Each structure stands twice: as C-alpha cells, then as structure tokens.
Amino acid sequence: MRRRSVLLAVPAGLLALAGCGDDDSDKGDKTSPEPKSPSAQPTAKMDGPVPALLGGTKFGERPEIARGVGKPSDKLEVKTLIAGRGPAAAKGDYIQVNYLGQIWDTGKVFDTTWDKGRKPFIFRVGAGEVVPGWDQGLAGKKTGSRVELAIPPKLGYGEQGRPPAIKGTDTMVFAVDVVGVFNSKSAAHGSKVAQDNKDLPKVGDNTDGKAPSVTVPKVAAPKKLVSSYVLEGDGPEVQETDTVLVQYKGVLWDGGKEFESTYANKDLAQFPLPRLVAGWRDGLKGKKVGSRVLLVMPPELGYGKEAKENIPANSTLVFAVDILAVA
C-alpha cells in the first residue's frame, strides 16, 4: 500500500483537485478538463474530423481553431497535428500540457493555458483526474506533439455540462501541446554543482532515475535552513504559489535513516507548494525546474515537537529533491 506523504502541512485528505481555470468570479468564464463524466466508454475514433487550425500552427504557439462544421461526431475524434519525438505518455505517467478549449458550435474559447500568467497543466494519464476524452485521447502521445480533440458530452462533462461555459449538449474542441512526460524513472538533468562543504550532506548526482545516495556527516546539524543545488537545471524558477512535480528522498540527520521516498514508492509526488511544510516552501522557492536540490531543515521548519510516521520529534530532516515540473 502506498504511504501517505508526511510532507503536507495539512492532512492530505483536505486536498481537492485544483482546476486549471480560476474559480474567482472576476477571472472570467474559465473552466478546465478535470471533473469526469460518470458514464464513459472507450469510443475513440483516431484521426477523425476536427475543426481546422486557422493560426498559431507551430508547437508552443497559441492556436486559433475554426468553428466546427456540421453536426459533431458522438465519438471521440483525435488528430495529431504535430508528431513529437519525445517519450510517450503511458497510463500512470504524468503529462504536462498547454491547451486551448472551445465549443464546437460557437467557437467560443472557454479556457486556455496560453493566457498571460498561466502555466502548463499537469495530470496523471488514465487516473480519472481529467475528463475521459482527455485520458483516452492523450494516452500514447509523445512529448513535442500537438493533438486536436473533439470530445462529445458523454466523454466530457456529461448531461450536466459545466455551466455557464459548457452546456450538457456541447462538444468540446481542444488543441493540446504535450510539453513533457514524467514517470518514476524521471530525474533532474542539470549541471553538476560542487558540494564542497564538509559539514553538509553529500547527495549523489546520478541521473538514471534511481534514488541518489544521501550521506549525512557526523557533525552537529545546522540551525538554519539549507537549500543548495546538487544539479542546477535551466527551467523556470519555482514560484511560491506553484504546484511542484518531484522525485525526492528524505532521511533523518541523526543516523541517516530514510523515512520517505518516491523511489521506494515507485511513484512521483505532486504537491501545492503553499501546503507543504515551511522547509520545503522556503527551500524550493526560487529554485529552477530541472534541478536536484539538497534541503536540510531544522525541526521548527519541519514538524517541531510533533512526531510523524518514521520521524521522531525534534528531528532535523534532509531531502534530495528533483524538481521535474511546475504548474
């Protein structure tokens, strides 16, 4: 059984799926592909008829999609507009995408990550975290691909729709760019940074997807937070409001015993940074995506006097964290 992470500052059960769009009323009429239809059967028809792309035809550009012509299909229609050459998204993998969604009949855009201030969306393929049309239509697609989907209501939000933007009779059309695919073998691939402080733990710099070694020195633990690069990536800096997709390994300063690891679980972790313990929030903010980071956090930035699973009270914690992506 997969263990619940001890890193969250609030019980994991309080976390709900976050929408791609913003629920604030002053943000407009945005929605996202997240809530799933209760009755969905695999009905994919590959390379079927989809509306034409009028502009923004290159990968990474905001697309402009024509209105649908005629009556839309009652099956999922999927067309690969640009065939990528990177890793393919298998069931259980995390996939990072940019997307634009609009209504077949009207051509009205209801949501897009290409809006200013938005970031690519990350979800786990085949886990029911998105509408079935996304789970089915994006499975197997390679990094660097642009895919167009026409999703009938039964593989979208069903008869209830997603008012007011999407009625229960609306077919949704999406253009989706596959930015990245991540799984339990993913790792940071940044440039190596010297680890020359003998009073700090040494972290392995392997990039083969296996757990890095973490060797804790036999000296007194630091009193302040340590956050330093082991591998420095070249991606965007982590913002304090981001959700991070990571590989990590956590050990105790006293004795170096491992207490939690995504490598042991054979699964990645995705966390909203604001809901993590202070040592993670402060230690990862400003660090670059693609990096491996050493975090050493004193008890007051971890769990203080409170004991957790495999973590005694008043423990100094040591982490090796690979920042794979942010959303």
Rank of each mutant, 00 (worst) to 15 (best):
M1K: 15
R2V: 12
R2E: 12
R3T: 11
R3Q: 12
R3A: 15
S5I: 06
L7R: 08
L8T: 10
A12E: 11
G21C: 08
D22S: 14
D24V: 12
S25P: 14
D26L: 13
S32D: 12
S32G: 15
P33M: 13
K36L: 13
S37W: 10
Q41I: 13
P42G: 08
P42E: 06
P42V: 07
P42I: 07
G48C: 12
G48E: 11
L54D: 09
R62G: 01
A66H: 02
S73R: 05
D74I: 04
T80V: 10
I82A: 04
G84A: 07
P87E: 04
Y94L: 11
I95M: 14
Y99H: 09
G101E: 09
G101V: 06
Q102N: 14
G107R: 10
G107W: 07
K108W: 12
K108L: 15
T113C: 09
W114E: 11
K116H: 10
F121D: 03
F121Q: 06
G128C: 14
G128R: 11
W134Q: 02
Q136H: 15
A139Q: 12
G140Q: 01
K141D: 00
G144M: 06
R146E: 02
L155N: 04
Y157Q: 07
G161T: 05
R162W: 07
P163A: 08
P164G: 11
T169Y: 03
T171A: 07
F174V: 01
A175I: 01
V176W: 00
D177R: 02
G180F: 00
V181R: 00
F182V: 01
A187V: 03
A188S: 11
H189M: 09
V193F: 03
A194N: 04
Q195R: 04
D196H: 10
K198G: 01
K198V: 08
K198A: 15
K202M: 10
V203I: 09
T207E: 05
D208M: 09
S213G: 10
V214N: 01
V216L: 05
V219Q: 03
A221I: 03
L231D: 00
G233D: 00
D234S: 13
G235P: 04
Q239C: 14
E240R: 11
V244P: 00
V244E: 00
L245K: 06
G250Q: 05
D254V: 13
G256R: 05
E260F: 01
K266V: 02
K266E: 06
D267I: 03
P274D: 06
R275S: 13
G283Q: 04
K285Q: 13
G290R: 02
S291Y: 01
V296Q: 01
V296H: 00
P299K: 05
P299T: 05
G302T: 11
K305D: 13
V318H: 03
